[in-house]
Design a protein around this nucleic acid. Structure first.
Lengths: 222, 222
DNA sequence: TTATAAAGTTAAGTATGCTTAACTTAGTAA
DNA sequence: TTACTAAGTTAAGCATACTTAACTTTATAA
């Protein structure tokens, strides 16, 4: 079995490869995991030896099906825990990421399947991320795009939010933005890449950093 | 913060000392944790250095208040998880020990307090073990005794069962024994230390090994 | 009192997973 | 084509937590 560290490496590699077979560099992985590049080289050798990834010195990392399986398993656990903590224990959506980050490595297949069943096999976690099923297949196709691609004057739905930034999510809650909430794009400012939106009757300016963490879907006929 | 390993050492020391200041030997601790005696000597030095225990070479281990605090915290997490898994997810009482054994080390103070609240501050876990509160105080006095102390002809209530033996608990369920169930002692056999009991209309023979894992309370007027 | 067995410790070695420092390779700008 | 910089690797070292083997201490029975 993969250790906690290996699970985190594979999760990060999978994330950086964006689900497809993209090659991941040592540098970006080091940044993602907040470890030295030396640690990456070392771990890459081990993961390759154990058949989780393809790795050639100076050529980057490609995840293999064995590694993908582990990554999706951990992602599944993470997202089911997040939803469970929100739905069953009433935690708020900004509180659950860090808790799930711990629990995902301490949960058996048996237990996570029980949680999945308890939640009635949900499709999305509290931040709009799709939840893989038992076999590592996503239960839905995400058809959203980065907020910076939006057009002024149009109305969109918030489909997904990056769960890693607690402060960001807290702020969104404060200005009354939830998942699936409709927002209108009032303006896009070129000089700082901020976006002015309208939510209900109030308008807000979202900084570039904020915008980078938000994803939208189109609303029919708008 | 204490590592997972240290948490397990302190939990085991606390358990073997039976909650009081009893000195724990390296051998019994090694047996309990299933590691070599050498590992105990090494770890004892570190735990002593960090103020969790009192340790003098060849003289055994005494837990200190700092260590007791960690032990009770882990025990609290373990027992609350057990009850939560039974009550909320519907796992059976023999399934929860091993799950809780993992989760207890991956749970923040914040989360366990939420679980405690969700369960309405319970007094006992599914095996009859008392649950420490936030401050490490037990919420009830356990007034039970080992089953081998029982008297023939009397009626008792099952108050507590060792959660570590899955097979044992499964068997008890099979013969319709639950927590708080009344049983009558029919006979105690000297040659193998087994005990014959009556549950409802059927009678069963419990082996010595089984008996060692069961605790009873007196039933008024019987 | 002493021999001896049981209990406990130390030392050396292993595996994991990290660090910094020194070095190598790859890619790019002049 | 070279010189330089960024990216990546290796080597040495550290902390944790374990092992086995050799040794020491303690307790006890003759």
């Amino acid at each position: 079995m993969a250790t906690i560290s290996k699970e985190n490496y594979l999760k990060a590699i999978y994330k950086l490869a964006k689900g497809n077979g993209k090659v991941v560099s040592s540098s970006e992985l080091a940044t993602e995991l907040d470890v030295s590049k030396a640690a990456i080289s070392e771990m890459a050798k081990k993961l390759a030896l154990q058949g989780y990834i393809n790795y050639q010195r100076y050529k980057g990392i490609k995840i293999l099906s064995k590694g993908k399986k582990v990554a999706l398993d951990v992602i599944r656990k993470h997202r089911l825990w997040e939803l469970f903590l929100v739905n069953t224990l009433g935690l708020s959506w900004e509180e659950v990421h860090s808790e799930a980050e711990n629990l995902e490595h301490s949960t058996t297949q048996f237990l996570i399947d029980k949680i999945d069943e308890h939640l009635d096999f949900p499709m999305f976690d509290p931040h709009g991320e799709p939840i893989p099923n038992k076999n590592g297949n996503y239960r839905s196709i995400i058809n959203d795009f980065a907020m910076k691609e939006c057009e002024v004057g149009k109305v969109y739905k918030i489909s997904r939010v990056n769960d890693r930034n607690k402060e960001l999510i807290k702020y969104l809650t404060q200005i009354n933005i939830k998942l699936n909430k409709k927002i209108k794009i009032v303006d896009k400012l070129r000089f700082d890449n901020s976006i002015i939106i309208e939510v209900g009757k109030s308008s807000h300016s979202l900084s570039e950093k904020l915008v980078e963490n938000i994803f939208l879907t189109k609303v029919k006929g708008k």
